[in-house]
Design a protein around this nucleic acid. Structure first.
Lengths: 146, 146
DNA sequence: CCTCCTGTAATTTTAAATTTTACACCATTA
DNA sequence: TAATGGTGTAAAATTTAAAATTACAGGAGG
């Protein structure tokens, strides 16, 4: 899919690490079982999150832990870490308009005018949701199930 | 891609129809040449726009024309016409989390809490851009090129 | 009635995303 | 110090989704 899969898997992993990271060794194998994807995909995602400093991974022995408080981890930060130009990919433009047509020649610039605003608004929305919010929603759901 | 291709092609077509619809017969062949895609794709897009009432197509003889003023055609309306549940597809969730894991079992609901806000904001952004805005950007660019 | 165009369906092709496989490298520990 | 269990990547294979092609029935107008 798009940003979707990878980003939602990343969030899945982060919630998992937050909940269990200090109780047990959270490996890519374990995360892959929970998220229903394969270990290599998880390792790639984990690797991106690590580069951004959101988590740490113990080398050799394995196991991931959160590296900063959940209220500092916004969805924007996660998306950006996973896919640096996610916003362009999310709302893209057809690639081969005819340069011989006045409209074809300009459609790219024209759309960029409007799309840029939409992308910015999207990024703002993503800035306004933190991992803390998501974890709190998760806890809410757990209690509701009682 | 995602919303991208089809939606930007649809906008391309609408601008084209607005500019040339009353001067010449705008066929799917012509639009496909301008947009750099193939006529059947265009016909499918045109068909969706027609169902929504944005344009009319003369049956038999061919040729598309705008059916309502450009300021009534928002990007939201276009996206919705082309792909009714575009916003869910745009920001989706991994499909197979493990139901045996507390997090896997709940991640879908948890993400929906936050994602719904983001989707709503996106739709609002799309509501705020009209075909009129885009056409006016286009005319701006044309004059700039002088 | 011939030509040009639309509307759709079905098939094929192409491209992108995921998974699988593979392996070097690192800590711990037995 | 060698075995175990984990990470980090790359490359190849598979799967899936998107787009193009092909095909054809049907309308309007010359």
């Amino acid at each position: 899919m798009h940003i979707s899969t990878k980003c939602s898997v990343a969030i899945h992993c982060l919630v998992f690490i937050y909940e269990y990271g200090d109780k047990q060794k959270v490996t890519s194998e374990l995360l892959s079982l929970s998220a229903g994807t394969n270990p290599v995909t998880i390792r790639n995602i984990i690797s991106s999150l690590k580069k951004d400093g959101i988590i740490s991974v113990k080398f050799g022995t394995g196991g991931a832990t959160l590296n900063c408080p959940p209220n500092e981890v916004t969805l924007y930060r996660i998306c950006k870490a996973i896919e640096p130009d996610f916003s362009s990919k999310l709302i893209g433009i057809h690639s081969l308009p005819s340069p011989l047509c006045p409209i074809g020649k300009n459609i790219h610039s024209v759309l960029d005018c409007s799309y840029q605003k939409i992308r910015n608004n999207l990024c703002e929305s993503l800035e306004n949701v933190t991992l803390e919010n998501i974890i709190s929603d998760y806890h809410g759901l757990l209690h509701e199930a009682d």
